[in-house]
């Protein structure tokens, strides 16, 4: 028996995508499997690890904790949408490389999405504010310190006018 499909139209990284999806398809599976935007990672699939973080209508959320069908008409930004328009890394992404804010890379898209949302609302965060902003994202490699360093480096570079 084939499953009932529901029409949705979701704008992802500025581009509108229309599709027919089963109701139980999560947003992260829609991004990865339907749109083939595999930058957003799937970790725990129940809202603990933060690897699937995306920006929904301006705010960071977990894309495994919502069904695509719920987001008809909404606008989502994924890690792919955070690079510069020519596809080269953003200031924040550069800072993650520079400060060695990643090792295996599994948590990195979520970390960058969470940090990006922080810097958008608070361009000069304190260390405590950075740790709070990435508090919902698990990393098993770095011990977090280099991630905090990377966000601080990015904040400094952005303040100096880096684009």
């Amino acid at each position: 028996m084939s499953e009932k499909l529901y029409p949705v139209s979701i704008t992802v990284n500025g581009k509108a995508h229309a599709a027919e999806v089963p109701s139980r398809l999560t947003l992260v599976d829609f991004l990865r499997d339907t749109l083939r935007l595999t930058g957003t990672h799937v970790g725990c699939e129940h809202g603990i690890c933060g690897a699937c973080s995306v920006i929904l209508d301006g705010a960071p959320v977990r894309s495994c904790l919502m069904f695509a069908v719920q987001l008809d008409g909404c606008s989502v930004t994924t890690i792919e949408g955070l690079a510069r328009p020519d596809g080269t890394p953003s200031v924040l992404q550069d800072a993650f490389c520079e400060a060695h804010g990643l090792q295996c890379g599994y948590c990195t898209p979520g970390m960058i999405v969470a940090s990006h949302a922080l810097l958008e609302s608070n361009p000069q965060p304190s260390e405590a504010e950075i740790r709070d902003a990435i508090g919902g994202n698990l990393c098993r490699c770095t011990g977090y310190q280099q991630i905090v360093d990377a966000v601080q480096l990015a904040a400094g570079n952005l303040a100096k006018g880096a684009k």
């Binding site: 929904l56 959320v61 904790l65 919902g136």
Partner: peptide
């Protein structure tokens, strides 16, 4: 309560 990402939703 949870984290930024969960409180946003």
């Amino acid at each position: 309560v949870g984290h930024v990402q969960t409180r946003n939703r």
